[in-house]
Amino acid sequence: MTILTRRRLLTTGAAAASTLAAPALAQTANNAFTGTTEMEDRPKDGVRRNISSFRALDWRPYFDNTRNGAILVDLDSRALHYWSEDQSIYKLYPSSVPLTEDLTRRGRTRVTLKDPSPSWRPTPSMKERNPEWPDFIGPGPDNPLGTRSLHLSWTYYRIHGTHDTRKIGRRSSNGCIGLYNQHIEELYEMAKVGTQVLLI
């Protein structure tokens, strides 16, 4: 028979409370990092995929070499990985990814143009879905492409910045890969025309 003293009750209660609170605290810390609190960001299988699933990767399973540098975009973990040609630099950035599967493109491409001051025009399909959108936005704080843009060999596809930081770590783009402006500015300096890109 266990005798329940006041001290034992307080100790047991505190331990139980801390155990119950731990997931909530972890979730709060995770949400503060990801900026994601919406339940819509949780897929039907119950596995949340956002920037909290960050992990370093090795380039070898994805590329034969790192000639001109290599960029891997992991759409599930919403992360962009960059390796320099000599492999002395490895970067891991949180990213936004396409909103829906039909807007998503996977496979191999490359950087074809570096735009230091991007302007934006909606694609024909964007305009069809959102006829109220403007036809053109010049460089500046209202530009959806942020402060830098890397054009890919696929028409209309970019890796670019965004002024709307709420989008990072979420399914929020119309097909492009978005980064915080400070991250695209850093990547812009390292990437070259010809840098290999793989979206998985």
Rank of each mutant, 00 (worst) to 15 (best):
N30M: 05
G140C: 06
A22H: 07
M39D: 09
T162H: 09
V197I: 10
L75W: 00
A22I: 09
G140V: 14
Y157M: 10
A32P: 01
G140M: 11
D58P: 01
L75R: 05
A17P: 01
W83E: 10
D115A: 10
I200N: 11
D115W: 00
T112G: 04
Q27C: 08
E189I: 00
L187G: 01
K192M: 14
N50W: 05
T5G: 08
L25C: 12
I184T: 00
V73A: 13
V73I: 15
I71D: 04
T5A: 07
A79M: 15
K44R: 13
Y188H: 02
I177Y: 03
T165Q: 05
I200L: 14
F136T: 03
L99T: 15
Y180R: 12
P131S: 06
E85V: 07
S117W: 01
K167W: 06
V73D: 00
D45C: 09
D64N: 14
Y156A: 12
V97C: 11
L99Q: 08
R129H: 12
Y93W: 07
K127D: 03
L57H: 09
T112H: 03
S172T: 06
R55T: 02
R106V: 15
A191C: 07
H151R: 13
D86K: 13
Y82K: 01
W133H: 14
D45Q: 06
L113D: 07
E40V: 04
D74F: 00
A17V: 12
H81K: 02
T5N: 04
A32G: 07
S172G: 12
R148K: 15
S95G: 01
D115C: 03
A21F: 08
F54Y: 11
R7S: 12
G146Q: 06
D64G: 07
D45W: 07
G161L: 02
R48F: 02
Q87Y: 07
K114V: 00
L199C: 04
W120D: 10
E189T: 11
L179I: 01
H163N: 13
A14I: 15
S88Y: 06
W59P: 01
L113I: 14
L113P: 06
L75M: 05
S88E: 14
L145K: 02
Q27E: 15
V193P: 10
L198Q: 06
I200D: 10
N130C: 04
L92G: 11
Y157E: 06
P122A: 11
T2M: 09
A56N: 13
T155M: 08
T104Q: 09
L10H: 08
Y157F: 11
S88V: 06
H183T: 09
R55S: 13
Y93D: 00
A14C: 12
S95P: 00
A26W: 09
D115P: 08
E40T: 07
R108Y: 14
D102I: 08
M126T: 14
A16I: 15
N50L: 02
E128L: 15
Y93F: 13
P139G: 05
P61S: 01
A22Q: 07
A17D: 11
P144C: 13
S84T: 09
